[in-house]
């Protein structure tokens, strides 16, 4: 089982991102689960969401304390939240930032993937909503979900021109982080 924790701010779509990973993993023929860190949702407030992917049905319902992957949608969260908390040393943390990974001074042995998702989102969507861009980066850097499955998942949430723009955002981020 792979466990993923999302850090974002209310309104940035962290919960939707977790849901799309669950849908994409299911498209890949695996089992999945996604849920928010339940709170009093307020735009801008730090929020968390969780996702699990496994080959067998997922029964556990507790929150995720030792994630394999962490996705950070907003680099300003680094000042207020210990985003690398419990992250496995073998895992990855994917951060939306224009800085170099080494400049972030994260307390983790895990690989740090830096991507300027805000820039990609502004170029493709024209808005600083980075959740789909970060999913593209997650997909490209971890290989846990197939790109076509992620695209399918996106189409369950968006349609028309907005969907096309988001597909481009995913593709751009995917290619940026893929080696």
């Amino acid at each position: 089982m792979k466990e993923i924790r999302f850090h974002g701010r209310g309104g940035q779509g962290a919960v939707t991102a977790a849901e799309m990973i669950a849908i994409a993993a299911y498209e890949d023929g695996r089992y999945s689960q996604a849920f928010p860190a339940f709170g009093v949702e307020r735009r801008g407030a730090p929020v968390m969401a969780f996702a699990r992917i496994a080959d067998d049905p997922i029964r556990i319902r507790s929150q995720i304390y030792e994630p394999d992957y962490v996705v950070v949608q907003d680099v300003t969260l680094l000042d207020v939240v210990d985003v690398a908390s419990g992250l496995k040393g073998t895992g990855k943390i994917i951060i939306n930032t224009d800085r170099q990974p080494s400049a972030l001074n994260l307390n983790t042995k895990a690989e740090v993937v830096a991507i300027d998702a805000t820039k990609i989102a502004m170029e493709t969507l024209g808005r600083p909503i980075v959740n789909t861009t970060m999913l593209g980066a997650f997909c490209g850097s971890t290989g846990e979900i197939k790109l076509e499955s992620l695209n399918k998942a996106l189409m369950t949430k968006f349609s028309g021109e907005l969907a096309n723009k988001n597909l481009l955002a995913i593709k751009t981020a995917f290619e940026r982080v893929s080696k």
């Binding site: 849901e19 669950a22 299911y26 689960q33 996604a34 849920f35 928010p36 339940f38 319902r61």
Partner: peptide, 10 residues
């Protein structure tokens, strides 16, 4: 509440 009402799963 939340644990089942707000979870996404197959």
């Amino acid at each position: 509440g939340f644990i089942l009402t707000h979870v996404y799963e197959p």
